[in-house]
Design a binder for these strands. Structure first.
Lengths: 220, 220, 220, 220
DNA sequence: CATGAATGAGCATTCATTCAT
DNA sequence: CATGAATGAATGCTCATTCAT
């Protein structure tokens, strides 16, 4: 559930996406171009309305070259989803400090997470809307990322339960972790409404408050 | 088909979807066929992978006739989304009893709502995944339905605050209502994971418990 | 092995090729347009170098319409092959008179057959060259036509053996029928050479002579 | 690779296929790799469905290298066809013994030829199916090989006519040679049917018998 | 000589929508 | 009102060939 500190080493399972080009470095670099182009287009127009021609053009590649690095449009969607999850996780970890108690860790993690959700709003939304277009196999990998991210909160809650700083029934740990994860996403897909009444800071403060009140009263 | 008690009178704003056929009754009847056909297909295959031919066939209509009752495939998607929201709202209202205190009302509403979400899982998911394909105008109407549904919880929370059965800061009322609405949806789009560990009943019991602990400790 | 005399009734097994259009008559008519366009193009350029656009244009149809009558380019190839075999068989039967002895029947059948091969040279060649591009299922149907045609000669040889006008060992009957069938084809695919030295009439006379000498000396 | 006794000296006309590489030995060697790779692929998938990438990979060459030894995919097809004809001819000549009379020579040649056709079935079929894809110029060379092979039988028939062991009208000599050549091919392209009823040995015995009966009764 | 990444014209096929009957 | 044949622009993807290194 925890990732290694060494940069460049993926801490999660990734689907192997074969490419015709052999040079790994080149593949990495070109795929990044492709992903960046695709994220923008998918976000703006959706997966289905985006054409491979548009992606190639936006990535400054010829259609032919695009298909040297990717087997299909669906491969691109998978690459995009995986990239977004990687971004969320890496930013989240970068921001989460090493807090003493589980309670402090939770407060910091939630704030960090909501900030990341705010920042990557469009991207997270993209996964919600387009994950269905993935092949079952690819979707399994993407959903697994979701689980792993949720696991980060689970770990913190467990830590808080252990050090006594959070009161939480064991059976509720997993559920609360999912709640946190989804409430962060809520900020992305209800932003159009919530942002009218709450700033990100207010949103974060209030949600944290609600959460902590839950975590002060449960029978442990 | 209408969710309010008064038959034929919609309690919400609906986008006008023009049809070539003038007979209102006929239009209603045929559109219901179309909607029912489309919901199934969209759910199974997604909006983009479903063809108008399939919808017509499933609705026992000719393609030509389909276009007599609807101007475009997007119209169908709007009709479907609106229909789903109507279904959610009507079922929710049908199940919610007239409880005495706000606290009791909330408990009952949440249970009813989660049950509806469980029942209409696929349909709710559909809105999450395909709302993006609506025209901005149609999307506005659909999002408005979402707000109105959330408003039901807001009303109950306000009632509880008024009768003293729930302790909730005014600024948090709206947010909590959204939380409730989204946590119901969470059961639809994280079901693949949550259902492994929680039954709908456990899920409801735990979420209610968390919610009430929030609502017992806030500074009013 | 023998076909009915009623026109419009196929005496052979045909693969069912589904079409979107329901009107059988229309399907029949349009498919004939398509076949006629395709035969010409396949003959001139080969199956692979012919595009569906070309076929549609040559058949005075839009690409869209083409695909209302056919599911794929391969379907067209099958339709073409079947049509050619039908043409060969119908012409052959039309020309073969009801001769008294098997020997006379054979002479007449061979002459008729070679004449048909001469006439449908390009079409027969087409089957030799493109049958490989058919799906295994379709190919089976096409090969079956080949067998049925060969059967016509087999029948005649058997008749001649029965009435004593032809001397042929039973084990050689099938083989001789195949020889005849293939020597007719030879006129189509070695025409570029044979025609320099033999007219169709000379070719027919000489082959018949060779054949009859075979059929006068075998131990019955 | 050469079929005549003198190594390196081709007994037939070959189209010049230019290569960028000048070292003749290397060119010969690499082309052999290419041909062997291509024969297998063309046989299995057909010319059009085989890609140059596949050929290069199968020949253990890079695509770039492939194009150093060949100018185009069509060049490869020509090389393949020529190679097959060379193989047929060389095997045929290796097996044909120096018989005394023309009649004996014919019997032996036919048996040898049918055995070669049996052995190289797929390859001979390949020429029938793909020769059309050659440029007119290349096709002329390939057809010429066919003529030359046929000439072998013509020579034997003429010898038999001369020594009196075979009775054959002069005008029929060429035709009979073609018949023999094509009936050998028949074993390759009707094998799917013939092999059900005849073994190669039976096929050879019966065809020889038929042939000799032709050659015993003609008016010389 | 060898390599393999880059190219882009080209292809089969789909599908929302229209409109003559 | 109903029908369903017609349309053609648009799409994802392929592949022979080239050429810089």
């Amino acid at each position: 559930m925890s990732s290694s500190g060494e940069p460049g080493v993926q801490s999660w399972l990734q689907k192997d996406v074969p490419s015709l080009v052999k040079d790994r470095q080149l593949v990495e670099a070109r795929r990044l171009q492709i992903i960046e182009a695709a994220v923008g287009l998918f976000t703006a127009q959706g997966f289905h309305k985006t054409t491979t021609r548009q992606i190639a053009a936006e990535a400054s590649l010829s259609v032919g070259s695009l298909y040297e690095y990717v087997r299909s449009k669906e491969d691109i969607l998978y690459l995009v989803c995986d990239h977004i999850h990687a971004a969320v996780e890496s930013r989240l970890k970068a921001t989460m400090s090493r807090a003493k108690t589980g309670r402090q860790a939770l407060e910091q993690a939630v704030a960090a997470y909501f900030a990341v959700c705010d920042d990557l709003s469009d991207d997270i939304l993209l996964i919600y809307q387009e994950a269905k277009s993935l092949t079952p196999e690819a979707r399994a990998f993407v959903l697994d990322n979701e689980v792993r991210l949720t696991g980060l909160f689970e770990d913190i809650l467990a830590r808080g339960a252990a050090d006594g700083s959070l009161k939480v029934a064991e059976e509720a740990v997993s559920l609360m972790a999912h709640n946190i994860a989804v409430l962060g996403h809520m900020w992305t897909f209800r932003r159009w409404y919530l942002a009218r009444r709450y700033s990100l800071e207010e949103f974060t403060r209030l949600q944290t408050q609600l959460l902590l009140s839950e975590l002060s009263n449960q029978k442990p």
